[in-house]
Write a protein that binds this DNA or RNA. Structure first.
Length: 200
DNA sequence: TTCCCGATTTACT
DNA sequence: GTAAATCGGGAAA
């Protein structure tokens, strides 16, 4: 398998990127520790027109500047003062779109992930949920604005899921975005155990 | 500089 | 089911 090219992320429609990322393989190699798995859940954040997006209305600050860059890089930020959340920036430069990676199914480096999560044995909650996933993979804001062809974090190509295996629903934790909270911008793989909240 | 609050998780009752 | 933890960003002053 090979790494996804930057052109994959630079499509105009972030929703398409979010759907196509399902089933791809996300890896990190932090301090020589290789971990990774299959992406099972994503959410799209559609730039300046999306009230749930940090860059809504063209808000360009130290934090959100990363999203305005060309697609194919990471956007990592701290939420609730505790959790690092991993996004894949998409679209072209100046168009602040991003895909939140919410969950993976671990396949490589499970022992390392168990240690990082302080867990005794494997359970879905190890990587089901954006904060949990980042902790398991060793992601923090030092990985912000890295491109997805780096040696620390990357995504490899894999067979795409058929549409009937993909569930589209509303996003999590964005009630403050009013009517935009109803947009069906969350995608996950039907029946997979490594999904943060299957019912919504 | 101050104040408010969040793209969550976990440990309780 | 409900609440606490915890800190940096963004807006206002």
């Amino acid at each position: 398998m090979s790494k996804l090219p930057l052109s994959f992320y630079q499509k105009e429609d972030v929703v398409v990127v979010a759907k196509q990322l399902l089933g791809k393989l996300l890896f990190t190699n932090i301090n020589g520790k290789l971990t990774g798995g299959i992406i099972t859940e994503t959410e799209a954040y559609d730039g300046v027109v999306d009230k749930a997006c940090h860059a809504y209305g063209g808000r360009n600050t130290n934090r959100t500047a990363t999203m305005f860059l060309n697609g194919g890089i990471t956007y990592v930020y701290l939420c609730y003062g505790i959790h690092h959340l991993l996004n894949a920036v998409s679209g072209k430069e100046g168009n602040p779109q991003a895909v939140l990676i919410r969950a993976i199914e671990p396949t490589v480096g499970v022992e390392i992930m168990l240690q990082r999560r302080k867990m005794e044995k494997l359970a879905p909650r190890i990587t089901a949920g954006p904060g949990a996933l980042s902790q398991a993979l060793g992601i923090d804001k030092n990985l912000n604005a890295k491109d997805f062809l780096s040696n620390e974090i990357w995504i490899e190509d894999a067979k795409a899921y058929e549409d009937e295996k993909i569930v589209a629903t509303t996003r999590i934790g964005v009630a403050y975005a009013q009517e935009h909270a109803l947009w069906p911008f969350r995608f996950y793989i039907k029946g997979n155990k490594y999904v943060s909240k299957p019912n919504s």
